[in-house]
């Protein structure tokens, strides 16, 4: 199955369908299922395959039969995942129909992750706080909850500003035990406060993944003309010659991304850059595989070992 281009994903109105397509893309090429429960009940044996974790090898059976078998376990709901989405007006960029906005892209990624997690028995919650309204869904499992979560994601609108620190704090309060929090944002708002809250949540034992969404237009300014830029959130306007400032702009954005990455890394937080002009399933697949192989976590969506 070929990867989905962002333009195709943007053209699909059905968020659940988009999420399923992305999930299919994640499964493509996987040698083994990346979704294992944390606390599992033995289910069956299967022949050992190269790359299987040796800790699941049944040595006793090897001693009796002289053949290698891996043990498989029944998955149970053992991880609570809180999806925190930035719904500020800046996430509505780009606002043309040729490519998905950052919010739509984030919603697709969140729906795909929720789909994956709930299919494996995890509990998934959702937290958005906007100026006027917000969505707060406690982490639960099951198909009905997944449909409800996807419906909430589908109805999100990019407007106003976003208090990221408060959203993450509220999301952490909904998690009763050590859990996984995935934050999808461009991290433009209140950079210091958001980074502080991220570190705070990580220090409280939660596993945190910071997914930073940036469009191609944000990473590098195109064109050579004089353009009056208008801030989507504040309405502030500023005249600039794109040709004159494009080099400095690209440098500043790269520095901002690097700063966010280093701040996250210092707190043991995974940082993923999600360019909205690239297929989401490829980025997620690479990241989940890397997370799984890193050995620090029990499964890609499992918690890191402390």
């Amino acid at each position: 199955m070929s990867s989905l281009s962002p333009a195709v994903v943007a053209a699909i109105d059905d968020l659940e369908l988009s999420a399923r397509l992305v999930v299919e893309g994640l499964r493509t090429g996987a040698h083994r299922s990346p979704f294992h429960g944390f606390s599992t009940e033995f289910r069956q044996h299967r022949p050992y395959m190269a790359g299987d974790d040796l800790k699941h090898l049944d040595w006793k059976l090897f001693g009796r039969s002289d053949r290698l078998y891996s043990r498989q376990f029944r998955e149970t709901t053992n991880v609570s995942i809180m999806l925190v989405l930035d719904t500020s007006a800046s996430m509505g960029f780009p606002n043309d129909s040729a490519q998905p906005s950052k919010l739509r892209y984030a919603a697709i990624v969140a729906a795909a992750l929720a789909h994956l997690a709930i299919a494996q028995g995890h509990a998934v919650g959702l937290m958005t706080t906007a100026a006027q309204s917000g969505v707060m869904l406690k982490a639960r499992g099951g198909r009905p909850h997944l449909r409800s979560l996807i419906a909430q994601l589908d109805g999100l609108k990019a407007e106003g500003s976003w208090d990221g620190a408060r959203a993450m704090s509220l999301g952490a309060q909904l998690l009763q035990r050590r859990s996984l929090m995935i934050v999808l944002s461009d991290f433009y708002d209140n950079e210091e406060g958001v980074q502080r809250e991220l570190r705070h949540i990580a220090q409280h034992g939660h596993d945190v993944i910071a997914m930073q969404l940036l469009s191609a237009e944000e990473r590098s300014l195109a064109g050579r003309a004089a353009i009056e830029f208008e801030d989507l959130e504040t309405g502030e306007r500023r005249m600039a010659d794109v040709q004159a400032i494009s080099a400095d702009y690209a440098q500043s954005v790269a520095a901002f991304v690097e700063r966010t990455r280093q701040s996250a890394a210092s707190a043991g937080i995974d940082h993923i850059l999600l360019p909205t002009d690239q297929p989401p399933e490829i980025i997620l697949r690479d990241y989940l595989r890397q997370r799984s192989l890193a050995g620090g976590s029990i499964g890609p969506l499992g918690l890191r070992r402390r």
């Binding site: 996430m91 433009y188 944000e218 004089a226 353009i227 830029f229 954005v253």
Partner: peptide, 19 residues
Amino acid sequence: DPATRRTFPTLRFITASRL
């Protein structure tokens, strides 16, 4: 003619230019 207007997520990385 006035310059083209373009909405943008943030102006924090955009420096003003002399016209």
